[in-house]
Every structure is written in structure tokens, then in C-alpha cells.
Simulated scan of single mutants.
Amino acid sequence: MRIIGALIISAGLFACQERTKVTGQKEQADTVAGNIPVAQQVCYSYIKDKDTAQLTLITTGMVSTGELNYNWFEKDQNTGSIAGEMRGDTLVANYTFNAEGKQSVREVVFLKKGDQLLEGFGDVEEKEGRVRFKDLAKVQFNNKIVFEKVACK
């Protein structure tokens, strides 16, 4: 019984040492041994008058997933998940959300500028059961909805 206890303690100490080594190297690169990307969580918030929105992104390499919630004053709240990829400084993703008792999917685009994400707008069409931009090259980032980086809760 004492041997098993000693093995468990040794394994725990070894795991802590290994974690310290990886954490110490994280400052140099966002990968661990074998070039496996490390997930990073970043949170953003939009507040204007009585309208608010929150975005939590978990990014691993170029892939981003998370939650996106819009709370428009005197309108139905949109609550859902986001899944997409970073293309340079632009996040292109599908937003699967519930609004007015119905689940929908629409494409969303955000331009990263420092600690901000600017939501993009443009002409859309419904295709294959989801709303998507007709031409991503024509999406405008007009500062209408700007998410600011905030501490994650």
C-alpha cells in the first residue's frame, strides 16, 4: 500500500516538473513538443448604450471555437457557438445560434486590430441552410460593432 502511495506521489511530482518545462517554453512559441499548437482563450465584449455582446474565443493554431452572445435592447437575445479559422488577421466563422425559438447558422467575419475585433458586414445570401456573405472580399469593417478585449470570467 505504501508503494502505491509513493508511486502516485512520484507521478504527480514528475507531471508538475514536465508542466513547468512546457510552460517555460510557451513564451518562446505557442507549441509544445511535436509542434502541437497550444489552445489560447481570449474574451471580448461590446457595449453601446443598452446593447451588449460577448465573445469567448479558444484558438488552437488557425482554428477558433467559442461562444458568441448578442443581447440587443428590446429584441430577442442571440446565444450560440462559433467555429471557424483565422486567415491572417481575419476570423471567418460559422455562428450557430438560437433566436426567436429557432436555431440558425450565419457566417460572421471579424478583423483583428490590436486588442479589438471589428465585426464585418456585407451582402448576404442563404445557401445550404445558412446565411453567408456573397463575397468575403467586399465585407466592410466600419467600426459599427467593435469588440474590446476583456478579462475572461
Rank of each mutant, 00 (worst) to 15 (best):
T90G: 00
I36M: 12
E18P: 01
F97E: 04
D49M: 12
E74G: 14
N94Y: 05
I8V: 15
G120M: 08
F141Y: 15
E27K: 01
E74F: 15
R132M: 13
T52H: 14
K138W: 05
I4T: 14
Q54A: 09
T23F: 03
R130T: 13
I47Y: 02
T90N: 00
S81H: 01
V109L: 04
I47M: 11
V32Q: 03
T90V: 09
S64G: 07
G101S: 04
V32N: 00
A33E: 06
K144D: 13
S81G: 12
T59M: 11
N142H: 12
L13G: 03
L136R: 10
K21I: 14
V32G: 08
P37T: 05
G66S: 03
Q103W: 05
Y44P: 03
G80R: 08
S104T: 14
S104I: 09
V22T: 14
D76G: 15
E125V: 12
L118D: 07
N35H: 04
I8E: 15
E128H: 07
Y44K: 02
K50T: 10
T65D: 07
F110L: 12
V150I: 15
R130L: 15
G114Y: 02
L7T: 13
R106K: 13
I58E: 13
L57A: 14
S10Q: 01
C16F: 08
K102G: 06
F141R: 13
I36T: 02
N98G: 08
L13N: 02
D89H: 01
T23I: 10
V92W: 03
I9Q: 11
R2G: 15
V105L: 11
Q140K: 14
G34H: 04
A93M: 01
T56I: 10
G114W: 00
E18S: 06
V139D: 03
